[in-house]
């Protein structure tokens, strides 16, 4: 599914959160959304998920509006993984994942297979029978990721899915997201880790103060200049086994380099 945002503007009171942002996410690719806190990443992701409507501009799904597709159909096609997702009742893990099938109301065999696939991919099968209250933060995040995978939609939008994970699981989840994309799904993911963004995303969109500062291939976007402008930090960058790594090194003081 091609997700396209065109000339998006969002205001919250006097503040402009997003200003004239246009971008496109395509099937088969992972698009990373980067930017400092408050740059508008989550706002943009929510718009792409159809959760909010912009003041100006349009969001289209394969050229169609959310209203044209319909709320229920959009729920089957676009999976959304919220930031710091909550689980309000102590359900069993498999039941949380099963909620991903709620938009479908398909036959039991189809749902059971999708739930199992999702749990397998997110590596939550070992604790499928536990209640969510007994999980660690990282385990809970993977359960919620499995829930979003169980939708088996044509697009997956994830807001900081690796923030609570240990390094090994960060790598696992990023690889998983890339696999999902290679299967033909459109994946958009909000990230703060520049190295993982550069390694696992096909394209990056860098937001700064509500504007699209740069978009394109990771190494075109994560130049020292762009990173300095968007985050106010100096980076250390290099190559390891033919792949880039980028580490934030020091804050750029006002009037500094």
């Amino acid at each position: 599914m091609i997700l396209s945002a065109t000339n998006i503007t969002v205001r919250r009171g006097p503040r402009t959160v997003l200003h004239d942002v246009s971008l496109e996410a395509r099937p088969g690719e992972v698009l990373g959304l980067l930017g400092a806190n408050g740059a508008g990443k989550t706002t943009l992701l929510r718009l792409l998920a159809g959760l909010d409507a912009p003041e100006a501009g349009t969001v289209r799904y394969d050229g169609r509006s959310a209203a044209g597709i319909g709320r229920a159909a959009l729920g089957r096609q676009v999976a959304y993984l919220a930031q710091n997702g909550a689980i309000h009742w102590p359900l069993k893990v498999e039941e949380v994942v099963a909620l991903g099938r709620l938009p479908h109301r398909s036959d039991a065999a189809t749902d059971t297979a999708a739930i199992h696939r999702a749990m397998e991919r997110a590596e939550v099968l070992p604790f499928a029978g536990r209640t969510t209250g007994t999980l660690s933060g990282g385990e809970r995040m993977r359960v919620l990721l499995a829930r979003a995978l169980a939708v088996e939609g044509r697009a997956l939008l994830a807001d900081e899915p690796i923030a609570a994970l240990d390094p090994a699981h960060q790598l696992d989840v990023m690889e998983l997201l890339r696999d999902v994309a290679r299967g033909g799904t459109t994946v958009v993911v909000v990230l703060h880790d520049l190295t993982l963004a550069a390694r696992f995303c096909d394209r990056l969109a860098l937001l700064a103060a509500g504007r699209l500062h740069a978009i394109g291939a990771p190494m075109e976007v994560l130049t020292p200049g762009h990173v300095a402008a968007a985050y106010g930090v100096e980076v250390v960058a290099g190559m390891q086994e033919g792949e880039p790594f980028i580490l934030p090194w020091r804050r750029i003081e006002d009037g500094g380099p």
Partner: peptide, 20 residues
């Protein structure tokens, strides 16, 4: 019932699942 089940994961997630 379905709406309340979906709401277990918060309002945003429920809305993303097509719940009004």
């Amino acid at each position: 019932g379905h709406g309340l089940d979906a709401l277990t994961l918060g309002e945003d997630t429920a809305a993303s699942m097509g719940i009004s």
